[in-house]
């Protein structure tokens, strides 16, 4: 038991170190990039060309293979930002602050993708590009929170204060998002409930579900790849003048 705990603590401390992260990520990056690309290709080709069309919606439902993964990733990233904020505030882990800085633009991009693909889907099926319903509004507010985090970060010159400020904002935002969603909910939602259920049978037929799950997986891998890249860039920016970084660059040359 103690050994396991020790290993976890060690991993945690390693995670906080820039050189360790930089070297491990340069090994992980090529593999995960190829993996993400292959799985994405598999899911999208399967979803668009080989899965059956839907009874009520026909072919248009296929946008689900972009929309659902993007929305899911957008929310998860925000959730992870809030956790990172908590870690940063409690244990002062530098890497957590860097994580928020690196991930916020990625999260914002996926939120925009979810909003746009949702609008394109909504127009033919619901009959409108946009409704002020709970899910749509809370996704829009999610985007606003991402933008606020990016804006707040860029307004500080001192990286440390910037990290601390965005940590606070990320946590407060995460507390507020469910409240926002609930408060819009009273105008009865138009958005259908989620089709993928964890504890019961999904309401989407399995031939459509598998490619969808593959797409979701590939989006998470994509976020992993983008996240690694963004964090490496940020580390390079912050540690440019440090010895370990200079040595590493020289070695690679």
């Amino acid at each position: 038991m103690n050994k396991i705990l020790g290993a976890i603590t060690l991993f945690y401390h390693k995670l906080g170190s820039y050189p360790w992260f930089y070297s491990i990520s340069s090994k992980l990056l090529p593999i995960s990039t190829i993996l993400a690309f292959m799985i994405f290709l598999l899911g999208i080709v399967w979803g668009i060309f080989y899965s059956p069309s839907d009874v009520t919606q026909g072919e248009i439902y296929r946008i689900i293979y972009m929309h659902v993964p993007a929305a899911s990733v957008a929310q998860s990233i925000y959730f992870s930002l809030a956790i990172a904020g908590f870690v940063y505030l409690v244990w002062k882990m530098k890497m957590a602050g860097l994580f928020i800085k690196a991930m916020a633009p990625i999260g914002a991009s996926f939120t925009i993708l979810a909003l746009i693909s949702g609008a394109i889907w909504g127009q033919p099926t619901w009959g409108t590009w946009w409704v002020w319903d709970a899910r749509l509004t809370s996704t829009l507010v999610l985007l606003l929170f991402y933008l606020a985090i990016i804006g707040l970060y860029s307004s500080f010159d001192n990286k440390k204060s910037a990290d601390q400020a965005v940590s606070i904002l990320a946590m407060v935002g995460a507390v507020n998002l469910p409240i926002i969603k609930k408060s819009v909910d009273w105008w009865n939602t138009l958005h259908q409930p989620s089709s993928i259920r964890i504890f019961e049978e999904s309401t989407i037929s399995s031939e459509m579900l598998y490619p969808l799950l593959i797409c979701i997986l590939s989006f998470y891998l994509m976020v992993f790849v983008f996240g690694l890249m963004a964090m490496r860039t940020e580390i390079a920016k912050r540690e440019m003048t440090k010895d370990w970084f200079k040595k590493m660059v020289e070695k690679n040359d």
Binding site: Y61, T203, M208
Partner: peptide, 16 residues
């Protein structure tokens, strides 16, 4: 304004 509400069920045509 009239909006169609569609459910969360996705079923292939052949199955239906």
């Amino acid at each position: 304004e009239i909006l169609a509400k569609h459910d969360e069920n996705y079923v292939p045509k052949e199955v239906k």
